[in-house]
Simulated scan of single mutants.
Amino acid sequence: MRPTTKVARLDAIRQALNRHRVNSQQQLSSLLAEQGIEVTQATLSRDLDDLHATKLRYADGSMAYWIPATTDQQAMEAAAAEGPEVEGENKTDAYLAKILTGLITSVARARNLLVVRTPAGAAQYAASALDRQPIKGILGTIAGDDTILIIAADDEVASSRANWLMTIVSGQEDSRAR
């Protein structure tokens, strides 16, 4: 049983999209109804928007909802093996730019590590936004109060990601290395 809060409903939607290939809002509504969650189409639309849901096109031509914030690395690799193409390739960049602009004050690189500075108290929020996105070559983050350590797969990726991060938080159009 779930509480009837928006947070619980959003969590149920995340779980449904992670466990099933959901092609329509009607299918998603049915999956939620099986859990005792009744939702109108308008509310479901707003919830999907709040979750930054988008649709993937799979190799077989079918479309299914996908939420970047809840897709782990194994699921991304499995989806890539199936051949999906994310519509709106820069959607993740735009989302991160919206969240991180004004929060990142500097980026320094030490081999495969990036040290990212933020205002006091903002590092965990910014790191969480980065962790929830499928960013090629980034293994993870560690956050303190005003510093984030980003671990990249190798030195080359770290260099590329440092430039990419500064590009998206500077509001420039070119979002390289995506």
Score class of each variant (00 low, 15 high):
T71I: 11
W66K: 05
A81S: 08
T70L: 01
E82L: 13
D60G: 05
A59M: 05
D93S: 09
R57Q: 09
G61N: 11
G88W: 00
P84S: 01
A64S: 12
A64D: 04
P84L: 03
E82H: 10
E85Y: 10
A94D: 11
A80W: 10
K55L: 08
T70R: 04
T70H: 04
W66I: 01
A59T: 09
T71F: 02
E82R: 11
N90F: 08
L56H: 02
D93K: 05
E85M: 13
T71V: 15
Y58E: 05
A79C: 06
D72H: 08
Y65E: 00
G61V: 05
Q73V: 15
D60N: 15
A78W: 02
S62L: 06
M76K: 02
S62M: 06
A75K: 12
W66G: 03
N90M: 09
L56F: 00
E77S: 13
G88Y: 01
T92L: 11
Y95A: 03
K55Y: 02
W66T: 04
E82K: 14
P84Q: 00
A59C: 13
M63I: 09
T92G: 06
Q74S: 11
E87K: 01
G83F: 03
A94Q: 15
A80H: 08
V86H: 00
A78Q: 14
T54N: 04
A78P: 00
D60L: 07
S62W: 04
Y95M: 04
G88N: 06
P68I: 03
Y58W: 15
D60H: 08
V86D: 06
Q74I: 07
I67S: 00
R57K: 08
N90Y: 07
Q74N: 15
E82D: 14
K55Q: 15
M63C: 04
Q74C: 08
E82T: 11
N90P: 03
L56P: 01
A69W: 02
Q74P: 09
G88L: 00
K91S: 09
A80G: 08
Q73Y: 11
K91D: 04
A64F: 00
D72P: 04
E87N: 03
K91Y: 05
T71H: 02
Q74K: 14
A80S: 12
A79L: 15
E77F: 13
D72N: 10
I67V: 13
E85G: 07
M76N: 01
A79V: 03
T70E: 14
W66A: 14
Y65W: 06
Y65K: 04
K91N: 05
A80C: 09
M76F: 02
T70Y: 08
E87A: 12
I67T: 00
K91I: 14
V86S: 09
D93H: 06
A79N: 06
A80L: 14
D60I: 08
A81V: 02
P68M: 02
M76W: 03
T92R: 10
E89K: 11
Q74R: 15
L56E: 02
G83I: 06
A80N: 09
W66V: 03
A94I: 15
Q73L: 14
I67L: 14
